[in-house]
């Protein structure tokens, strides 16, 4: 099984330390989410792992093959999409895919068909990529990254410029990749996306990994927040003012949003409805990871 090891990576650009002694070990079949603020060093780290940028010191190995010194030996096992997809505008999608296959090993026809189908790119494969929308480019970019059936996939902001359906399809695709036993490294600023597909997360701040945790562990310690949306009325505001803390509800014109922990949702709803207030809807905020992330970054800043 393929194991990716990032060993003591330091990257200094113009006397500024972008990555400071970063160590990472990703086991086969794992989906690892890398999160951090803009400029934290996520993309630089991913570029180093892909062999696109050389670190100032340290090494990255995939199955004991150094990606830094022998990138071409490891490239058959790595597929990546860093930042925006790079496509030749004069090639059709199909030609672009064939070009990517020619540059690496040839996968089975079944595998190619599965990728095309899962990413929903079949309908525009015969159009030149110069005529693609940004969403189409993103999908084809992902297809090009994985078309040679790599064991490790690195995706930097894969849902950039995708609509809601596209985001959902990419999530399903990542889950499928995990099911196929592939290792996925995913960098995203959309925490809900990371939360829905990753097994483990790494938080990077100012070039340092400040936390690495299993998502299950985070889920055990943090609870989701639910939003109860109610029709605005004077009596409701008075009622909420007596029963709940002011910070828990917010008045938004015609409606009021009350935020409660998931475990308190049922008794709160019962309490509100039994007092005759009109319920508009309930939605889950899913802020576990956000809360966890903010606490970690805040703690680091205070230190």
């Amino acid at each position: 099984m393929d194991k990716l090891v990032v060993d003591d990576i330091v990257k200094v650009i113009k006397k500024k330390t972008i990555l400071n002694h970063v160590d990472l070990r990703v086991e086969s079949g794992q989906v690892l989410g890398i999160i951090g603020q803009n400029g934290a060093g996520k993309s630089t780290l991913l570029k180093i792992i892909c062999g696109l940028t050389r670190p100032t010191s340290g090494d990255v190995t995939l199955n004991d093959i150094s990606i830094i010194s022998e990138p071409n030996l490891a490239m058959d096992k790595i597929g990546f999409l860093i930042e925006n997809p790079s496509l030749y505008p004069y090639l059709t999608g199909r030609q672009q895919l064939n070009y990517c296959i020619e540059l690496r090993s040839t996968p089975s026809k079944d595998y190619i068909d599965t990728i095309i189908k899962m990413l929903g790119i079949e309908s525009f494969l015969d159009k030149k990529t110069g005529q693609y929308s940004s969403g189409m480019k993103q999908r084809l970019g992902i297809a090009c990254a994985v078309i040679h059936n790599p064991s490790t996939i690195i995706l930097d902001e894969p849902t950039n410029s995708l609509d809601i359906t596209g985001i959902k399809e990419i999530r399903e695709f990542i889950k499928y990749m995990r099911y196929e036993g592939k290792t996925v490294l995913l960098s995203s600023h959309m925490l809900t996306e990371v939360e829905s597909v990753c097994d483990q997360i790494v938080i990077i701040d100012k070039g340092v990994i400040i936390d690495s945790s299993e998502l299950d562990t985070i889920n055990q310690h943090y609870e989701n927040i639910c939003e109860i949306i109610l029709e605005n009325s004077e009596t409701l505001i008075n009622f909420l003012g007596i029963q709940y803390e002011d910070s828990m509800f917010e008045i938004n014109g015609d409606y009021i949003v009350l935020r409660v922990k998931e475990k308190n949702l049922s008794p709160t709803l019962k309490n509100i409805l039994s007092n005759g207030f009109k319920l508009i809807g309930v939605q889950k905020e899913g802020r576990k990871l956000e809360e966890y992330y903010l606490r970690k970054v805040e703690k680091e800043t205070n230190v």
């Binding site: 062999g51 071409n72 490239m75 790079s86 540059l103 690496r104 090993s105």
Partner: peptide, 15 residues
């Protein structure tokens, strides 16, 4: 310029 060099660098060919 078009960053398509990434595609070539991701190949199994040496630089």
């Amino acid at each position: 310029k078009q960053k398509t060099i990434n595609i070539l660098f991701s190949s199994t060919f040496s630089r």
